[in-house]
């Protein structure tokens, strides 16, 4: 079973990882876990006129690795195998795209990422993923 867990580095997002670790025992075979962090595409065409692509990618990589760190530490501690991944784009769309490319069977995502207030104003990534995805989405509370 292929499971995708999108994380943004928030404590809430990591609850999805904890849930996965706790529920591994329910499964007959241990699942293939994919951790995914999506970085907003901050560098528009204009920025690229002035900043070289390597610097931009280094920045995304640093931010992405920082966002993945806690989730990876939890999986490492649990001794589970996983793949980790950083993409650049719009979070919900990028998550769904990755799920399709990797033929993921289920997306496990925390219902709230960074803060309830910004969820309220800006919409939550989780609800958009649930709307767009073609595979079952498990919302972890």
């Amino acid at each position: 079973m292929n499971v995708l867990i999108p994380v943004d580095g928030s404590a809430a997002a990591n609850r999805a990882v904890e849930y996965m670790i706790a529920s591994v025992a329910w499964l007959k075979e241990s699942p293939q876990i994919h951790l995914l962090n999506v970085q907003w595409k901050l560098a528009s065409g204009n920025v690229k006129l002035f900043i070289d692509q390597d610097t931009i990618n280094d920045y995304y990589r640093e931010q992405g690795n920082a966002a993945l760190a806690d989730a990876r530490a939890k999986l490492d501690a649990a001794g589970l195998a996983y793949a980790y991944h950083i993409s650049i784009g719009t979070p919900a769309e990028a998550i769904v795209q990755y799920a399709q490319e990797q033929a993921v069977d289920q997306i496990v995502i925390c219902a709230h990422g960074h803060g309830t207030l910004s969820d309220l104003l800006l919409g939550s990534v989780a609800s958009k993923v649930a709307h767009l995805a073609r595979v079952p989405v498990l919302l972890v509370k």
Binding site: R61, G79, Y82, A83, Y84, H85, I86, S87, G89, E93
Partner: peptide, 22 residues
Amino acid sequence: KAEAVHLVDGQVSSNGQQSEGS
């Protein structure tokens, strides 16, 4: 359609071995 770009792909096996491809 603006596709997401993949930047980092990595694997960690259950014994903690890591491999990364960019």
